[in-house]
Design a protein around this nucleic acid. Structure first.
Lengths: 227, 227
DNA sequence: GATAGTATTTACCAATCGGTAAAAGTATAG
DNA sequence: CTATACTTTTACCGATTGGTAAATACTATC
């Protein structure tokens, strides 16, 4: 008779034993494949709208495996948001590298390039934030939203720690906050913006439009802050 | 035996016959109560995440009445978005009244006040746009998204027709588009922003923050456009 | 009061949801 | 080979989804 576990066991023990049973899939391990599939699905649908069956199908596994490895939809979502938060916090400092020795507008341009480089390669982060944004602060409290708030706050505090942010404090804060919110919309709802603009959401033209638009809006404010 | 209709009949005939059967509810008519309840529910949940049962409960009716009056969830959503689009298009010109004879920054300030006055009283419009934004342009095509796109486009073209929008055309377009996207986030996801800011989403402090923030970001750009 | 047309309620349907129990498969340790 | 632990699959549960059929309630007209 199978043992009835509560929660789930930690299959990460056992050293190196699960890494050969997959077809031609680059042997990732079931847990990792579920996590990656969940990241993709949660990037397209809010926590409520996403279903464990969709994630299982995306990962090519049977849906009970999700509960075997993660226990619940909530905990899977938490694992996804936690990883994204951690990875983003690791990469963020690189975006600021050498910016302080440049002139403000050039620094902003380079920052936007680095920022867009990363998020066009890892769109899920901004997408997950965007599709769940309307639910944050609402009555229904979902574990994992915590990491979304920390993500927003992390980006904000990093940008505010950005070398020189002089001028009136309130305007500097508006600069940082609005930059993030705008970028989150352009990257998290890119298919909508691209459709409105008549562009391919994954094409170079859209990327260039995002950069030009952010520069056009924030350059005057930046120059005012430094005047 | 009851007649099996396909679709649904048009209960709007019969002149004046349904307006007395409700308790103390201000006698609205069932159809109108469903439409208003649907507007509230669709403002909090995306089209997919909202359910006809939630709407029926919100309206205080049995859920088959939704299909009796509107035929399907899609058509109900379409009715909601169509009305919001129509009402917004009607009110928009008033936001621009007398703005052209003012100095740009003062005009922007007054415009923001009128804009926020309306959307703090009618938050559903921006909320519905926001919670469905990520799905627009995606594969799944939902009737009613059309009105959302028309809403965005209408606001954009109205603002661009705003008396003088001089300067480089691209920057003027960035101004208008980003203003709308930012405002949509501040109003459509106000509970999230308010939580991040530690404010009450329906309080005067948050409204003031929105105005100050929009002014801080767009005043320098506006002045540059007019220089 | 009978009739006809509208409005509402009751009872259902198949599909899908998150989640669970238990059997079946698979590998390793002794 | 056997015992054991881990992994995967099968089969289910109750709840909810959008939607429908049919019965009932209501109201105005004749």
């Amino acid at each position: 008779m199978a043992v009835a576990r509560k929660g789930h066991s930690k299959p990460a023990a056992m050293g190196e034993s699960r890494r050969r049973q997959r077809k031609g899939d680059g042997d990732e391990g079931t847990r990792e494949r579920i996590l990656k599939a969940a990241t993709r699905v949660f990037a397209q649908h809010s926590f409520r709208a996403a279903s464990t069956r969709m994630i299982a199908a995306e990962a090519g596994v049977d849906h009970p495996l999700i509960h075997y490895y993660f226990g619940s939809k909530e905990k899977l979502f938490e694992a996804v948001t936690e990883r994204i938060y951690r990875e983003t916090m690791e990469i963020m400092p690189a975006w600021l590298h050498d910016l302080s020795r440049m002139r403000p507008v050039e620094g902003l341009s380079l920052f936007i390039d680095r920022f867009l480089d990363y998020y066009f390669d890892h769109p899920e982060a901004q997408q997950i934030i965007f599709v769940n944004m309307a639910q944050i602060g609402q009555l229904e409290e979902i574990p994992g939203y915590r990491y979304i708030l920390m993500h927003i706050e992390g980006l904000r505090s990093m940008l505010e720690g950005m070398a020189p942010l002089p001028g009136r404090r309130e305007e500097a804060e508006s600069f940082v906050y609005c930059f993030h919110i705008l970028a989150d919309s352009f990257l998290g709802a890119k298919s909508a913006h691209a459709q409105i603009l008549g562009m391919d959401p994954d094409g170079e033209a859209y990327r260039q439009w995002v950069k030009d638009t952010l520069l056009a809006v924030f350059t005057p404010l930046l120059e005012e802050l430094f005047s």
